[in-house]
Design a protein around this nucleic acid. Structure first.
Lengths: 202, 202
DNA sequence: GCTTAATGTTGACACTGTCAAGTGAGCAGA
DNA sequence: TCTGCTCACTTGACAGTGTCAACATTAAGC
C-alpha cells in the first residue's frame, strides 16, 4: 500500500521547490491580488503539502521577502529596458526610466503594491537588500546628470522618485485616469517636466 | 440563571455600537497596525460578541470603509488646521497644507496607509465618497491660486498631491529619513519648491 | 398588549499561518 | 552492502480569522 510511492519519481524531493514557490506566489499575486497570496495556495500550486514552504522560508513573511526580491529584479530590468530603448540624451533616458517604472507598476499591480513596504519583508535578508539597492541605483544614475536651482543635488532623485511613487499609487488606486476628473491622457512625463530639471554643463 | 441579565442595564443594546466599533478599529490601527485590525478584536474591545458588527457593517470591508471615512475627516481637519495657522499668502497656505498632510500621515501611520486604497472600501457608500471629496477639495482650493508654465492648470494639483503621497509613503516605509543616505533634515517644502510654482496674477 | 423589526449571542464552517511529530529518500562512512 | 544520519516533505493539530444561520432579547409601532 505504501510501497507504490516508489513508482512516482520525486515523491519527496521536488528539486527546486524554493523557486517554484516564488513563481507560484507571483502568479497568485497577478491573478488574485494581495489577498490571494497564501502560503497554502503557493504550496498547493507547487504540488507540495501545506507545511513544505516552512523548510525554505521563514514563514509567509519570508516568502514575501523572496517574492519582493525577485520583484526588484524585474523592476530594475524593466527600467533598464526602457532606458536602453530611449535616445541617449539625459532627458530622454530619464523619461525612459519613468516609463519603465510606470510600466512595471501597471503590468505587476499587486507586486508593485507590496514591493516598497519594508514591513512586509525581513530586512536582514542580504539578497533582498542587494536587489533593492540595485533597483534604486538605476534611478540614482539616471538623475545624476541633472542640476536644479536647489543647492542639494540629491533632491532631484528624491523628487523624481517621490513623484513616480505617488503617481503609480494613485493610478493603482484609481485616483488618476479613473476617478480624476480632468485627467484625459495624463502622462508621468508632464509631471516630471514640472520639476524644471536642467542638464548640468560639465 | 438567565434572569440575572436584567440586573445589567444595557445587555442587548449598546446604544452606539457603530461608532464604538469605528473608534475601536482606529485604536487597534494605532496600536498594532493594519495587521492588528480585526473584526473580532473590534467587537471584543466594544464589549460585544464577535458577530455583532455584522448588523452594522457589510463585513470587515464595510468596517474599514467606515474607518476610512472617519479618517478622511481627520485628514481634512488636520490640513485645514495647518492652513489656518499659516500666513495668509498662497504659498504659505500651500506649505501649511502640505505640513498637515505629512503630519496626519505621521500621527496616524496605519490609517494613512489604507486611506487611499480604494480596494479596501465599498465605493458605493455615499458617506465615504463625500468625505473623500471634501478632503480632496482642500487640496484643490489650496492649489487654485498657482499657475505653472504648463498649459494644463490641473497639473499643479496632481503634481503636489503626487509628491505628497510619494513622500509620506517613503517616510512610512523608512526610505526617507531612515534608509536614505543623504537625508538629514529633508522637508516636504523643499520638494514642493522644486515645482517652481508661481502665484497667478489676476 | 401584541406584533414586528432591530440588535446581540451562540455555534458552526472553511480558511489562514504555524508548530510538532512522523516518514521517506538519498548520502556518507564502514 | 549495510548502518546511521540528514534533508525534504507529509500529516495532524492548534489558535485565529471572516462569515453565515439560528436563536434570544430588547425596543418600537400600532
Amino acid at each position: 500500500m505504501k510501497k507504490q510511492i516508489s513508482a512516482k519519481k520525486n515523491a519527496h524531493h521536488h528539486g527546486d521547490l524554493r523557486n517554484a514557490l516564488i513563481s507560484a506566489g507571483i502568479e497568485l499575486l497577478n491573478e488574485a491580488g494581495v489577498e490571494g497570496l497564501t502560503l497554502r495556495k503557493c504550496a498547493a500550486r507547487a504540488g507540495v503539502s501545506h507545511a513544505a514552504p516552512a523548510h525554505h522560508f521563514r514563514g509567509l513573511k519570508g516568502l514575501i521577502t523572496a517574492i519582493v526580491t525577485r520583484g526588484y529584479k524585474l523592476f530594475g530590468a524593466e527600467m533598464n529596458q526602457y532606458i536602453a530603448a530611449a535616445e541617449p540624451d539625459p532627458k530622454s533616458r530619464l523619461r525612459g526610466c519613468c516609463k519603465g517604472y510606470v510600466q512595471f507598476s501597471r503590468s505587476h499591480k499587486a507586486l508593485a503594491s507590496i514591493i516598497f513596504n519594508k514591513a512586509n519583508c525581513f530586512e536582514d535578508e542580504p539578497e533582498w537588500q542587494e536587489a533593492a539597492d540595485a533597483a534604486y541605483q538605476v534611478l540614482v544614475d539616471i538623475c545624476a546628470p541633472f542640476k536644479h536651482r536647489h543647492d542639494r543635488p540629491e533632491l532631484t532623485e528624491i523628487a523624481v522618485w517621490t513623484m513616480l511613487e505617488g503617481y503609480v499609487n494613485f493610478e493603482r488606486n484609481g485616483v488618476i485616469n479613473d476617478g480624476y476628473r480632468h485627467s484625459t491622457q495624463l502622462h508621468i512625463d508632464l509631471l516630471i517636466d514640472m520639476l524644471c530639471l536642467e542638464v548640468a554643463s560639465d
